[in-house]
């Protein structure tokens, strides 16, 4: 072995990355930091507001304590309404999302046009936040829980439709082929060959989305679409912080319980 070979095989300095890799990595790091710093700078944030933030927080906490528990009687109905909005919205979605998932899945869509329409519905539904959907439906149905239900449903279609469509694209193609070979119609192939295979996914995502929707419907009232958000918003604007803390604690309780229910149910059905 020549000294050169030896040096090549047993270098004195061992590095995990080659010089080229190192440079590329540093460029990535620098790029990320630069983008973040530039964004922050360009936002022109008045940092002096930030200076007394700790005082403001302390002030808030002091005013929130003790919570005005006698107020709880008045928020019970809005709290139930929040849950109803989430549940009814999820039920509506449960009905709508399957057909949309079917036209959005490459293996079940009738043609390219329907596939494109399905995909567009999914993207549009998911891009627009529940609160923005609520703005739209408040303009249509007027303020109230009806707007909230449709807002929740329209946002959830994209979420559930996407997950169900992915499940449909992954079904066992052999079973579908076998059902086709019996001379079954297209609808029958969907019902017997595809649907049973994706049913667990449909149930699972429905329960999962229900628990997300509970969380979402707590803020629908900010734009007038019903639920606890209406009272929360007005209490905050009237600086009734002791009432706000009661509502925040109740929301916390409801969200934690619904998350637990959803996790338990999903564990049972899968």
């Amino acid at each position: 072995m020549t000294p050169a070979d030896h040096a090549a095989r047993y270098p004195e300095v061992w590095r995990k990355f080659s010089p080229r890799q190192t440079v590329v990595r540093y460029i990535w790091f620098a790029g990320i930091v630069f983008v973040a710093a530039w964004s922050l700078r360009h936002l022109e944030i008045p940092w002096e507001y930030f200076l007394d933030a700790h005082e403001q927080v302390a002030d808030l906490v002091v005013r929130m304590y003790p919570p005005a528990w006698d107020h709880f009687g008045q928020i019970l109905d809005p709290l139930l309404e929040t849950i109803h909005i989430a549940t009814l919205g999820t039920i509506v979605t449960f009905g709508i999302s399957l057909p949309i998932a079917i036209i959005s899945a490459r293996n079940t869509t009738p043609n390219v046009v329907t596939w494109f329409i399905g995909r567009f519905i999914l993207v549009a539904s998911r891009s627009i936040n529940t609160v923005v959907w609520a703005l739209i439906f408040v303009a249509i149905f007027g303020p109230g829980p009806m707007a909230g239900i449709w807002a929740v449903a329209f946002r959830s279609i994209g979420f559930m439709g996407k997950l169900i469509a992915e499940a449909i694209e992954e079904v066992d193609a052999g079973a579908v082929e076998a059902i086709e070979a019996t001379g079954a119609s297209r609808l029958q192939v969907l019902m017997i060959g595809v649907l049973p295979q994706v049913l667990p996914v449909i149930y699972g995502t429905t329960v999962y989305r229900w628990d997300i929707n509970i969380r979402e419907s707590t803020v629908l009232g900010f734009v007038g679409a019903g639920g606890i958000g209406i009272q929360l918003y007005s209490s905050i604007n009237q600086f009734q912080w002791d009432e706000v803390s009661v509502m925040l604690l109740s929301v916390f309780g409801v969200v934690v319980v619904s998350e637990w229910i959803s996790a338990t149910v999903r564990e049972k059905i899968t």
């Binding site: 936002l43 022109e44 944030i45 008045p46 940092w47 507001y49 930030f50 933030a53 403001q56 927080v57 808030l60 609160v131 969380r215 979402e216 707590t218 803020v219 900010f222 929360l232 918003y233 905050i236 925040l248 929301v251 916390f252 969200v255 934690v256």
Partner: peptide
């Protein structure tokens, strides 16, 4: 995690004022 982003946002608006901060 429990509180929706919009609830957090309104609390922060009360703390640091309106705007991107």
């Amino acid at each position: 995690r429990t509180f929706h982003e919009v609830i957090l946002a309104i609390l922060f608006v009360k703390i640091v004022g309106f705007g991107p901060l």
